[in-house]
């Protein structure tokens, strides 16, 4: 498995950067010629992960969100989204659909469920007080069908 391309990106935890981050992720995978659905899946999953960093990781305090992207020669996209925020006490509980610690902001509690259903694999590493890293993996189809 060879790495074909890599990128890294960091930006302040401002909510206007949610759209910036998912646009960069979309641009990064573009040369794999993804379908519209695959592109939308990646944008949505990255948007959820970055929003989690901003809303939960840094809880409205200031911080930096770090993204690293990799494309390997089997058409696999790996995107790591990391914050150095508060971390998650109970990752299993946080990943339960409809669980949210921010109901007043109308968070639906679906962030991780969306990432899981829109990506092939989602890994979450977190340490309270140190931060959280979410790794998203998705293989882009290589057929020319339904494009």
């Amino acid at each position: 498995m060879n790495i074909i391309n890599e990128m890294s990106l960091s930006f302040p935890s401002k909510s206007l950067n949610e759209s910036f981050a998912r646009s960069v992720a979309a641009a990064f995978v573009m040369n794999l010629d993804p379908t519209i659905n695959e592109l939308s899946d990646i944008k949505t999953a990255v948007s959820e992960a970055v929003t989690n960093c901003i809303v939960h990781g840094y809880r409205r305090s200031k911080g930096t969100v770090y993204i690293k992207g990799k494309i390997t020669d089997n058409n696999k996209v790996i995107i790591k989204i990391r914050d150095k925020g508060c971390g998650i006490e109970d990752v299993k509980k946080a990943m339960e659909p409809l669980f949210t610690t921010a109901p007043e902001e109308e968070r639906a509690g679906l962030g991780f469920a969306v990432m899981q259903s829109f990506c092939d694999k989602v890994k979450v590493k977190s340490e309270p007080g140190k931060g959280t890293t979410v790794t998203l993996e998705k293989t882009i189809s290589q057929t020319d069908n339904d494009r």
């Binding site: 998912r22 944008k43 949505t44 948007s47 959820e48 109308e106 968070r107 639906a108 679906l110």
Partner: peptide, 9 residues
Amino acid sequence: FMDSSGIGL
């Protein structure tokens, strides 16, 4: 485009 914020909305 929408993410789960649209569901919350």
